[in-house]
Computed example of a mutant assay.
Amino acid sequence: MVSINDLELKADRLSVIDMHTAGEPVRIYDATLLGLPGETILEKRRAMGERFDHLRRAMMLEPRGHADMYGAILVPPSDPAYDAAVLFTHVSGYSTMCGHATVALGRLLYDQARLQGRSQTRFTLECPCGPVAIEVTPDADPAAAPSVRFESVESFALSLDDSLELEGFGHVQFDVGYGGAFYAILPSSRLGLDFHQTPLEQLVDAAGKLVAELRATRSFRHPQEPDLSFLYGAILTDGDHVTPGQLTHNLCWFGEAQIDRSPTGSGVSARLAVAHARGQIAPGDSIAFAGASGQAFDGAVARPTERGVIAAVSGRAYYMARSELILETQDPFAQGFMLPARFGDFLSA
């Protein structure tokens, strides 16, 4: 068989590492040598979208990615005190915080340090929402993935017991929490849906309708940074209370109808902030959160803040592949594509 390396292809090549955390994928691309302009991480985020978005599209969209793909693009930190800096990506753009990707990057940074002969277990990751502290704890079994714990940026409840009229569902009450991104949070029962028995497709559809209505009718303002002032998604839960020591489930709808297989680290942080605001949990209380894959993250309030809490989230990430994506210059899908809503969309393209 001919090796693809023997072929003289006119193509760009992107070396990537594929990992997953609780079943949610993260494709990691090192863009530190890309020459991305910007002094701050948010300036780099804007520059990535304006000048190099074709790389995101190639990595996230079909045929190299898929509708629920997720990615992490490493860029130079804006401060030498940070160990690494990252832009979080998905099929429809860029997010401001991602817990499952942070867990994966924590393991990657830890393993890179080991390969360099260093025993570093604490890292600071610069994210678009701010710096995030990571601590890696090796497992007693050397063959097992280490546990990665991160303390996120300040999480808080933006509003409690908000409500709106949602077509097909009537009067719906919800909370809005911030955990590096804003989420509408509510038990699925408030939409008339049994969390454990309703077909997943119906839960997804209901969450999407709620997000669409909120994005069209409400504003979500971050107290410091306009670039963080948008509703990222919705989290449907299996109940309106969390109880320390007991497992709780949630379904996270984010971006443009992506469903997180993991419990969603930023979503767990937002849920912890809301639960703390309601007096349901205290600092140090531990709660297990499971997402669509059934694999759980451990979440806790590390400490309260003036506006909310610093949430701590723990999980484990696993390697899946190391590969080189090839973008041939004549490939019509070198920058990826998305399935159309209808075949007629091809006629107007």
Rank of each mutant, 00 (worst) to 15 (best):
M320Y: 00
L200D: 15
D12R: 04
D285M: 02
L74I: 15
R56K: 11
L210E: 07
R303K: 15
L339P: 01
T243Q: 14
L186R: 00
R221I: 15
L115N: 01
R13V: 13
Q112V: 03
E8N: 09
V103W: 06
A157V: 03
S147W: 05
G106H: 08
A296N: 09
G49V: 12
D331E: 02
G239E: 09
T121R: 13
S286I: 03
Y318Q: 10
A104F: 00
S348I: 15
A72N: 05
A58H: 10
S262K: 04
L166H: 00
R322W: 01
P244F: 14
E8C: 04
P128K: 10
G294Q: 03
G233P: 10
A234S: 14
A317K: 02
T264G: 11
T21K: 01
D331S: 11
L166F: 01
C127P: 05
G284W: 07
L186V: 03
I287R: 03
H249N: 14
K44Q: 14
V313I: 15
Y94F: 02
G65F: 11
A341W: 03
A290Q: 06
P76G: 05
A273K: 07
L228S: 10
F52L: 01
M69Q: 13
A104E: 00
F337R: 04
F337Q: 07
D12C: 13
Q258W: 02
Y29I: 09
L34P: 09
V313W: 03
G308V: 12
I17Y: 08
K10S: 09
T89F: 04
A288F: 00
R118S: 11
C127Q: 08
H222G: 05
F289S: 06
D238K: 06
E62L: 01
F220N: 03
G99E: 01
A144I: 09
Q116G: 05
Q173M: 06
R27V: 08
V313Y: 04
V211R: 08
R307I: 08
Q120P: 00
Y319W: 10
G180C: 10
T102Q: 07
A81N: 13
D139W: 00
E24C: 07
M69I: 08
Y319E: 13
A349Y: 01
V75Y: 02
R114L: 14
D260N: 05
R64L: 13
